[in-house]
């Protein structure tokens, strides 16, 4: 392992705060890296061609910086997904130091500040995800929702810029703000009268939930593999203009 000064810790999902704090205490100068994100790592073709882009990011990012990545914090429970569990096994098998973890918290809910704020939707997602490791007290003006966006942070974050600021966040990302990423009741919560886009990454098991909820609440279901095409953008735009 590198010296403590430049330890690099990769993570995905929303690891439990206690574990994050333990590691921050042990490695106070560590660089933390969200492996869920598309960091332009070359595709190592470990996973099938048609597979969840987020999991591909995890594998490709890890392999792309193999010599520099000291620890991988790997949520493997319902707070992430079965694919996350398999990814952890693959990375262990390939020689990475993997700390498997499960975030079971569904009781100690933090209040919502960002999901229900009037900040740009793109900023809402960034603030919520950045708060997983660097926890800060959050404050933002609240607004009534004109629209909703349900789901995980999309691989193509640019689609979030199509939405007006008065868009509330629902689904897993809202759970992350709560600190309860495994709380499926919270994940399934939406406001029935708020026109909502239900988003899932193509080939992700959450497509099941997104499609079901979109049908139930007359929302718009979209799944995107990699980056959004112009047609998908037009579909979202039409939903927002007609609703």
């Amino acid at each position: 392992m590198n010296t403590q000064k430049n330890v690099k810790i990769g993570f995905w999902g929303c690891p439990e705060r206690t574990l994050v704090n333990e590691l921050k205490s042990k490695y106070p100068n560590a660089d933390w890296l969200d492996l869920d994100l598309d960091l332009n790592a070359p595709d190592k073709h470990i996973l099938p061609e048609s597979y969840c882009k987020i999991i591909k990011n995890i594998i490709n990012n890890s392999l792309g910086m193999k010599d520099k990545l000291d620890i991988i914090v790997a949520p493997i429970g319902k707070d992430k997904c079965d694919s996350g569990w398999f990814a952890a096994q693959l990375l262990k098998d390939m020689g990475f130091e993997v700390i498997e973890c499960i975030n079971p918290n569904i009781d100690k809910k933090r209040p919502l500040v960002i999901s229900t704020s009037n900040l740009p939707l793109y900023d809402k997602f960034n603030i919520i995800m950045n708060n997983i490791i660097d926890e800060k007290a959050l404050n933002a003006a609240q607004c009534k929702p004109k629209f909703g966006f349900w789901g995980v942070p999309p691989n193509d974050m640019e689609i979030l810029k199509l939405f007006p600021d008065e868009t509330h966040v629902y689904g897993w990302t809202r759970c992350v703000e709560r600190g309860t990423p495994a709380d499926v009741a919270e994940e399934m919560y939406v406001e029935p009268d708020v026109p909502t886009v239900f988003y899932a990454q193509s080939f992700c098991a959450k497509c099941q939930l997104a499609k079901y909820l979109a049908d139930k609440y007359n929302g718009l279901y979209i799944d995107i593999d990699d980056y959004a095409t112009n047609s998908v953008r037009a579909k979202i735009e039409a939903f927002l203009r007609l609703s």
Binding site: N218, L220, Y221, T229, S231, V232, A234, K235, A238, F239, L242, S243
Partner: peptide, 10 residues
């Protein structure tokens, strides 16, 4: 009034 839509784009 508009209630629902879909567009197969792929």
């Amino acid at each position: 009034k508009f209630r629902d839509m879909d567009w197969n784009t792929s």
